[in-house]
Design a protein around this nucleic acid. Structure first.
Length: 274
DNA sequence: ACAGGAACCTGATAGC
DNA sequence: TGCTATCAGGTTCCTG
């Protein structure tokens, strides 16, 4: 469900409330969500630990704990982290609860149960391949125009699949890729190596702009995305193509088309994007 | 290298 | 109303 802007907002909404708190109790209602180590070990090594930091890498959240331990969470499609008082009615899809030393809790809720959680020491993070092999993120120093240019040049496949590949760029997902391509005027089925110099320039700035705007608007709430306090974002009101099938393009009025590319629903303007 | 499909899962919604 | 099909902000693995 969430892409990098949504995960960033979740991080910001939880950071101040969690850092410094101690995890007093962990209830795991759905053990198979724990991918490392076992659910029992996860519970044993996190219980009683103080949370020392909360950071994000791509779509992963990393809860730093004392003793150089870390809890890693990937929300996949429908995962949520919700902070509340411990006696609040639990979410309908609550799967894991972290009870804190101040009488509050953070629950991991997930309707499709595709999310993944890990607990390990910092020097074991290499075990999470999606994390350790992740490419540079938009808005970061490592994500340069030249990196994008060279990467596109080397790829024979279509550009949408490449932009979705987290090894190439960390954090982009289906919505923000469609939006980036729309602003840059590039058809999602274009071969990556066919993109021209001036198009790469536009794409580079559109990727950064779309991610920056997404964060500024508190994320995109299309269905069930919420931040750590249960609040919706508003970037859905700023989307150019995603979810706008048959609606007029905001630039030229041509109806937005929806097709399948790289196995994902893909929206674009057939007039503006070539 | 790359495309396509399946798998992991469940819920909301559209269509009949 | 009730059944069936389709789709979903993600990632990984397998086959051709």
């Amino acid at each position: 469900m969430p892409e990098m802007p949504e995960v960033e907002i979740i991080k910001r909404s939880l950071q101040d409330r969690l850092v410094g708190r101690t995890i007093q109790q962990v209830d795991i209602m759905l053990p198979r969500l724990i991918k490392w180590p076992t659910a029992d070990r996860f519970q044993a090594i996190t219980t009683g630990k103080k949370i020392t930091s909360l950071t994000r890498r791509g779509k992963y959240l990393l809860f730093g704990l004392e003793d150089d331990l870390v809890i890693v969470v990937h929300l996949r499609m429908t995962g949520k982290l919700l902070y509340s008082s411990a006696n609040t009615q639990q979410d309908r899809f609550s799967r894991i609860k972290f009870y804190l030393d101040n009488g509050d809790m953070m629950q991991y809720a997930d309707s499709r149960t595709l999310g993944t959680l890990y607990a390990m020491s910092l020097d074991e993070l290499w075990r999470i391949t999606g994390l350790s092999s992740m490419g540079p993120e938009p808005l970061s120093e490592d994500f340069t125009l030249n990196y994008l240019k060279e990467g596109l040049k080397k790829h024979k496949g279509n550009i949408k699949a490449l932009l979705l590949n987290q090894r190439f760029i960390g954090g982009l997902g289906n919505i923000y890729v469609d939006e980036s391509l729309a602003i840059a005027g590039i058809h999602p089925e274009r071969k990556a190596d066919s993109v021209t110099e001036s198009e790469v320039d536009k794409l580079f700035s559109s990727i950064n702009a779309v991610i920056r705007d997404g964060i500024e608007h508190g994320g995109t709430t299309f269905r069930d995305y919420r931040d750590g306090n249960g609040h919706s974002g508003s970037h859905q009101f700023h989307l150019r193509v995603y979810g706008r099938k048959l609606l007029p393009c905001l630039i030229c009025g041509t109806p937005i088309v929806k097709i399948e590319v790289a196995g994902r629903g893909t929206h674009y303007c057939p007039n503006c994007q070539r």
